[in-house]
Amino acid sequence: MSAPGASEPMLAESSSAFIDLRRASKTYAARTGEVVAVDEVTLSIRQGETIALLGPSGCGKSTVLMMVAGLIQPTTGSLWIANQKVSGPDPRLGVVFQKDLLLDWKNVLANVLLPFELRGEDPAPRRSAALALLERVGLGGFADKRPYELSGGMRQRVAICRAWIQNPDILLLDEPFAALDAFTREQMQLDVARLSLDRPRTTILVTHEISEAVFMADRVAIMTSRPSQIREIVTIDLPRPRNMKTRESPAFGAYIVRIHAAFADLGVLHG
């Protein structure tokens, strides 16, 4: 795994896999007939690894993520986390959805503490941790504000803090930065990378942005629609911790060219 261009087969790896999708498919019963959203995806994710699911709109990225989150069951095949078959949301999960889903009737701090509130645990002991987390993503003075008083990027940061406060082992990110402008997006990618410094979290990042995938991930899974499958997995061998310098390295650019070409070959891009 040295130069850009290294890829690996899609076979299930050894039992070192932390998250393991084994020929998992999802078929939706739509009114117009059945929709195969995900077709026999096999993917093994090691503990602490960040994998990006990269692909065009509608190729089934969110569906894969929802399966890992235990929100939908695979129609066929199976899904395992730490050698346990998944049948519902795992307690080690932290999820950030595409929409920030903040509650306007609670202030920022209460939104971050929502997971404990919803489980009926006392959020008071977590207050200082939540405040520290907000501080780290640059929202130090905003704990008492309401979500509608924040910008889109600030709101998404609160949503990330809400996932992070549970100290998740597994982080599922469904295009969390897609609605943001280029500068804010880059800042948030750095923020998330920085949050993971203490201990790498097993992360699945759904994105349709090639540079985001390369910057964040250890491996990039290239997905295609019709049939919705993982076509190729590219290993991103860039040093960590990644920072602003990462984007300037020639290797970074080479990966982007390499993945871009892969999509062109698949017919996703043409012209």
Partner: peptide, 25 residues
């Protein structure tokens, strides 16, 4: 429905979801 999915991945109690999400909303 996405708010309910959020509550599900947080393993929320039904009564809490009602009190903190459904009722205020």
């Amino acid at each position: 429905p996405e708010l309910l999915r959020l509550a599900t991945v947080m393993r929320a109690r039904q009564s809490r979801t009602f009190l903190h999400l459904r009722l205020p909303q």
